[in-house]
Design a protein around this nucleic acid. Structure first.
Lengths: 143, 143
DNA sequence: TCTCCCAGTGATATACTGTATCGTCTAGCT
DNA sequence: AGCTAGACGATACAGTATATCACTGGGAGA
């Protein structure tokens, strides 16, 4: 079962409609290897025969993000982009050179934050961790 | 030596001018206990007798952030705000209730990321960690 | 299979946040 | 006091996102 099929199944199960634009956006998203913004996706779609409205793109991305099928990433330049991801808590390593995103589970981070929370009497509800650097292949290419 | 005096001294040492608007913005910033955005500061200043231009506010905040006298914080709603802070690498605990920001040094985090980088052959250059929750006093107030 | 209803669509307008421009002013050096 | 470049501020502009609203088509129920 592919990513888009899984998403469609889950959306349908929750009572959302599986419309043409949604299917097309889902298919198109898979082409991206690096984070993309709503505007980029919109422009790219308009390059093809697919013509969807701006509002629909924003709404669909929002919907997918809420269901954790897409993840928000802060890109170096400051805008925020989306990446395809499995549901569950994850963190990102963003490559400054190629833009590719590597995900990892930050299990030890939980312990770190737990200790900190106890020390400061702060109840932590959620956290955000993102690292910026250069991925393996870009290091090789650069040297 | 107060915060604003320290900032003014450093700015002056670097060849920046100590203009009226800059002094006024510096003074006003100290009133905030929670992160504020450029637009908020601008609006607040316009409520008073102080009339500074939009561009000046943005430029000054940018300048202060570059010198690490102000720190960028991602607020729950998505906008980014500024908080007064000492120079040096720090992370934030943001209170969902009162908006107050507690800073901490994430020394152990460096080790965590170091191990991760080695495992994934990813060269980490910078990182961003921010936690959202409820601070001690808001927990007390809420219960 | 047909019908109907409302979630979803898309064109457009609008809000918001931040940057660029450019003539004017002033901090601070000489 | 005079000079000059850094800073100011009014305005225009760019980019990102949301609001509105008439319409369309997905899909459940007949």
């Amino acid at each position: 079962m592919s990513w888009s099929e899984q998403v469609l199944t889950e959306l349908s199960a929750e009572g959302h409609r599986l419309t043409g634009p949604r299917r097309q956006i889902l298919e198109y998203i898979l082409r991206y290897t690096a984070p993309f913004t709503a505007e980029e996706l919109l422009a790219d779609l308009h390059q093809t025969e697919v013509q969807v409205g701006r509002a629909t793109v924003y709404r669909t991305l929002e919907l997918l993000q809420q269901h954790e099928w897409l993840r928000l990433v802060h890109r170096p330049e400051g805008e925020h982009g989306y990446v395809v991801g499995e549901p569950g808590h994850q963190h990102h390593l963003v490559c400054r050179a190629c833009g590719k995103v590597t995900m990892f589970e930050g299990c030890e981070l939980e312990t770190l934050l737990g200790g900190l929370a106890e020390r400061l009497h702060f109840r932590i509800e959620s956290h955000w961790l993102e690292a910026l650097g250069v991925c393996r292949s870009c290091q090789v290419a650069g040297s």
